[in-house]
Design a protein around this nucleic acid. Structure first.
Length: 641
RNA sequence: GGCGGUGUAGCUCAGUCGGUCAGAGCAUGCGGCUCAUAUCCGCAGUGUCCGGGGUUCAAGUCCCUGCACCGCCA
């Protein structure tokens, strides 16, 4: 019977576009999946999106969309991104899928019936404007940071999961399964967290506060909140409880996450599984963060790195290779363009690309592009190189399952370097000049072809596109899913007489001087700038939902105690009261009688206690602020399109 | 304030069980080769392994402590 392997990424929360962190997790999962397929495992690889909760409702409303419309859109961006990174997931789950919703309800019911869910009131500080509770710490001067109002004391009844009940059991489990959470640093972190008493977990929200969620099966006034919804995707995707995939894959499951969601995965999820009577996962694999130019990735600083931009500029496999080689799994790593370019040039272009190129060129030159036989018996040098190939394969097999991607790649590169050295030592060009060395030359070139072939297979999990390209040039038409490490990744699997083709460079060198060279995150200024705003492409329909009108400012006055705000009455066919943050640059006299552009269907809001029914559009250039207006006066109320 | 992490060559970082651990790549300098993508190969270095103390026959490695930076939590 073939062994199974089940790997998951987190389901990504759809309030932002994919960034390098999402890409890293997903690529790692992909490498694990591809590696296990290469090893002959029956493999299932799951990713998806997490789509419920109040933040989604908020983001949707900010975008002027219904929640479902909004999550459909963002989820699709994730779904469209992964093929471009060559992600070989078997399924893409969404928490809004009906099948998922049914499983969540089933498990909630089970846990409830087991007596692990109880109803209780919670008392706390509640902001009416935000419709949420705040902790003391989140308040600014005792007031809600968004509304600048003091929250009220409020009681709310909710459902709680008896997590504390399983605390000691969990501690014991982690102790008896040293690899349950890895690397070890995160295991230690969880254990130290578990030294404190574990509180029960609030798992519901009343529908009057949040209706965008999965209804509790035992109380339809409530939806379940966050974790009972999200984590369950890992089993619902397999058709828990009686789906055939569940019995086939669940016993081999491993999760892959970034360190920010350690606690839910290391503590909530195992206790939930325990309570529901589902066997625990085997490993929780936790990785670190990408830092950008030694700083935290930040939207406002414009340092969000968008994976597709990098793929476009540097190529997919170069990007994959860089992430795998540069980050030690579990630790944080730094991302910067110079390092990326250096890796590409040194490792990919000079070492691997050039080895491949010189090997094929010599095959072409000396043997008319046909794979030669082993003409002469192997010599010591040949054997040593063969040993490097075997060593690299063993290192791959040993390190990839332990998440030691950088080590596996280092071992493969030792083999590549050894092959480059071998060429130098043997000097095929001198053999070619001596008619008596013909047989030896055959062997040497054949060996080099064999090494390239083996390397192609060894890098296949990390760089599938490159592997395929190399194999095809070597005259091996195999599809990537048909490759097996023990058949194709070994010595002597080439066929004599097959024609190889030289082709272009696998990895063109990148000229560092060509792109604009600034001190920091260079090369991609456009990407960095754009990503500060929503870089999401929208349809014309989405744009039409924005109601922009030309308005005539009939009246303007300063708002007492405010430095920035003016109260305006704007005629857009009807009179609108609008609060505009332009007082620093414009006096009321400046703008009375002016025509402006007004966002007319913005949700009303109160600023400094004054109601505002729209937003005047302006443009900021450095410190100066200019209002937008039509080039010549038009009838107030005309629509901008 | 509490907890955790990190600190190793000019730069980016590996270093598993305490014992070939003083390492790799890049950058620098010199030499070699011409099959190759101005690529490759060889040689050459530079070190307070953050400071201080301890355990040990033996310490980047384990313990204590101080400093710096980072993260999480309250």
């Amino acid at each position: 019977m073939t062994q199974a392997f089940y790997i998951t990424t987190p389901i990504y929360y759809v309030n932002a576009e994919p960034h390098i962190g999402h890409a890293y997790t997903t690529v790692i999962a992909d490498v694990l999946a591809r590696f296990h397929r290469l090893m002959g495992f029956q493999t299932f690889f799951l990713t998806g999106t997490d789509e419920h909760g109040d933040k989604i409702v908020q983001a949707a409303s900010d975008a002027g969309l219904a929640p479902k419309e909004y999550v459909d859109r963002i989820s699709q961006i994730f779904r469209d991104t992964w093929p471009k990174l060559n992600i070989s997931n078997d399924q893409f789950i969404r928490t809004t899928d009906n099948a998922h919703i049914r499983v969540v309800q089933e498990i909630l019911k089970k846990v409830h019936e087991a007596g692990d869910i109880y109803f209780s009131t919670y008392r706390g500080l509640y902001c009416v404007g935000c419709e949420r509770f705040y902790t003391e710490r989140e308040l600014v001067d005792g007031k809600c940071p968004d509304h600048d109002k003091e929250p009220i004391e409020r009681e709310e009844a909710n459902y709680f999961f008896r997590m504390g009940k399983y605390q000691q059991w969990l501690i014991d489990h982690i102790h008896s399964h040293p690899d349950f959470i890895r690397p070890e640093r995160y295991r230690n972190e969880v254990l130290s967290f578990l030294k404190e008493p574990l509180e029960d977990l609030c798992i519901s929200r009343p529908k009057e506060r949040l209706s965008w969620g999965i209804t509790l099966p035992f109380d339809d006034r409530y939806v379940t909140y966050v974790w009972f919804d999200a984590l369950i995707n890992y089993v619902s995707a397999l058709g828990y409880p009686d789906g055939p995939k569940f019995s086939e894959y669940w016993p081999s499951v491993q999760h892959l996450i970034a360190k920010d969601i350690l606690k839910p995965h290391a503590i909530y999820w195992p206790t939930m599984l325990k309570s529901a009577g589902i066997p625990l996962y085997n490993h929780l694999n936790v990785h670190g963060y990408w830092r950008i130019d030694d700083g935290k990735m930040s939207k406002s600083k414009g340092t969000v790195v968008r994976p597709l931009d990098l793929v476009e500029e540097f190529g997919l496999d170069a990007f994959r290779y860089f992430m795998l080689r540069e980050m030690v799994f579990g630790l944080d790593a730094n991302f910067n363009m110079d390092a990326l370019v250096q890796r590409i040039n040194a490792d990919l272009a000079n070492d691997l690309g050039n080895l491949f190129s010189r090997t094929l060129a010599m095959t072409d030159k000396y043997f008319g592009g046909k794979v030669p036989p082993f003409g002469a018996p192997l010599e010591d040098l040949d054997q040593q190189l063969m040993a490097k190939v075997d060593e690299a394969r063993l290192q791959l097999m040993e390190n990839v399952p332990k998440l030691g991607f950088h080590k596996a790649l280092m071992a493969i590169w030792e083999c590549i370097n050894a092959a480059n050295k071998y060429i130098d030592q043997v000097g095929p060009w001198t053999l070619a000049k001596d008619a008596e060395k013909g047989a030896r030359l055959q062997t040497v070139i054949r060996i080099l072809l064999e090494v390239n072939k083996a390397v192609a297979v060894l890098v296949a999990p990390a760089m599938p596109e490159t592997a395929l390209k190399m194999l095809h040039r070597l005259g091996i038409p195999k599809a990537i899913e048909d490759l097996r490490l023990d058949v194709d990744g070994v010595w002597g699997s080439l066929q004599e007489g097959v024609t190889v083709s030289k082709g272009d460079a696998l990895f063109p060198r990148i000229d560092l001087k060509a792109p604009p060279k600034t001190a920091k995150t260079p090369a991609l200024p456009a990407q960095a700038r754009e990503s500060a705003d929503a870089p999401l492409q929208i349809s014309i329909d989405a744009f039409r939902q924005i109601d922009l009108r030309i308005g005539l400012v009939k009246h303007a006055e300063a708002i007492p105690k405010s430095k920035k705000l003016l109260k305006l009455i704007v005629d857009i066919g009807e009179e609108r009261q609008v609060v505009a943050g332009i007082a620093a640059s414009h006096t009321p006299q400046d703008i009375i009688g002016k025509q402006v552009v007004l966002l007319a269907n913005l949700q009303p809001a109160k600023l400094m206690g004054v109601e505002s029914h729209g937003m005047v559009l302006a443009v900021k250039d450095g410190d100066t602020l200019r209002l937008l207006s039509p080039e010549k006066p038009v009838t107030p109320g005309c629509r901008v399109s």
